[in-house]
Design a protein around this nucleic acid. Structure first.
Lengths: 216, 216
DNA sequence: TCCTTTGAACTGACCAGTCAGTGCAAAAAG
DNA sequence: CTTTTTGCACTGACTGGTCAGTTCAAAGGA
């Protein structure tokens, strides 16, 4: 009964809605995300996912209609984490009375935090996002939109408030900022993992604020 | 006899060094690059590659030791095109007496040109570059190094010449610039293909030169 | 009692890599 | 000049293995 709350032990108690099923699904997501990030979707077998999650293969098909659907739900779940985190960062900066540029900077930080916390998920998005002719193409379009829109929103407000030039191309700038953080962070993780996140953040802030080519 | 020179007919005469084999290999590269960009490496079958190239499956194995090796040679061939093109852009700007920042701008343009000309090849690099545990991991490291080094070289010269602040983090800035151009260009190709390359280039130049947050 | 999980056996499609054989142009032999 | 040989490039049917997805009886848990 509920007094035993944590059940098996390692699993968080959570509120009423958390059923045994939710736990199993989460374990499957975690197993799938790392395997797919490492090997790609097609090279990852359902048997492997089940094994790493510590469940039987039949359980995978009891919880998801297919390997494909497991993956799509994974994508949707992941982007929710990112978009929420970006939005909170932007709102937080605004609440603290910062400018819109401060909000952008806070979003860069949030992006770095996200990539540091979920590197496998990030790798997986990058690998799939610009592919064509994939079954989950439409899911990815939505997913991308969800994240880019948050950045565009802040840029738009900054232009309206006179903080940024009206000449900037908002969608393209949003993409470019996104790419800047993404690639810098992936390279950081892959090739210079010893560096601190503050260090990386500071370098990117400098780049954002146009001090790279700034002649004093 | 030798007077009949061209022999049968369908085969091009060509000069001595250019063999039938080279032509076949080129056809296979072209077929493989688009298929793998669309579907990923594992989902692309050797039968598909052969069919699109208009040769028999056995020919693939006559020309390449394995599917894997075909792919690795493709990666190596592609990066040579990019690195050369970036270096020429940088040198060209220098020859014209431009600053190092002009050289960076020329490289952005070269990057955009490359992506516009070889979109499939670009998608393919992006999809594979940050994966772990892949057979061609080491090839990719070399490939990435080859391109990033060119950018770092220009940044270093710019710092030495006082054009850029000494505070910038050269490797990280190179990655960030690379990512900025890459993601902006891929989004341009995927979601706003009607825009002109000059337009995209102008927006990115503005971002590079720190005029985004520039209060006049 | 009802929901969820287990685990193992099975099917059928798909696919990387192989190999015996074909076609053909140029060299060698007659 | 004609015939034979050589060897490169290519062919495509075939093989051995893999894997997504199915099925189901039995067990476990709330």
């Amino acid at each position: 009964m509920s007094a035993r709350a944590a059940g098996g032990g390692t699993i968080t108690p959570m509120d009423s809605s958390s059923t045994r099923r939710q736990t199993t699904r989460r374990k499957l997501f975690e197993a799938a995300v790392t395997l797919i990030a490492e090997q790609g979707f097609s090279s990852t077998t359902v048997d492997e996912i089940a094994e790493r999650a510590g469940v039987a293969k039949g359980t995978v098909y009891y919880n998801f209609a297919s390997k494909n659907e497991l993956f799509e739900e994974l994508l949707r779940h992941g982007i929710e984490l990112l978009a929420t985190s970006l939005q909170e960062a932007a709102d937080g900066a605004a609440d603290r009375g910062g400018s819109r540029v401060d909000a952008l900077d806070a979003m860069i930080r949030a992006g770095l935090d996200f990539i540091a916390r979920y590197p496998a998920l990030t790798q997986l998005y990058v690998a799939e996002l610009w592919r064509t002719n994939r079954a989950w193409q439409s899911t990815l379009m939505v997913v991308r939109e969800r994240a880019i829109t948050v950045v565009e929103g802040v840029l738009r407000e900054a232009v309206a408030g006179g903080e940024l030039s009206e000449d900037i191309d908002i969608p393209l700038t949003a993409s470019a900022l996104f790419g800047m953080v993404l690639v810098a962070a992936l390279d950081w993780q892959s090739y210079q993992p010893h560096r601190s996140i503050d260090d990386v953040h500071a370098s990117l802030s400098r780049l954002l604020q146009g001090r790279v080519s700034g002649h004093p």
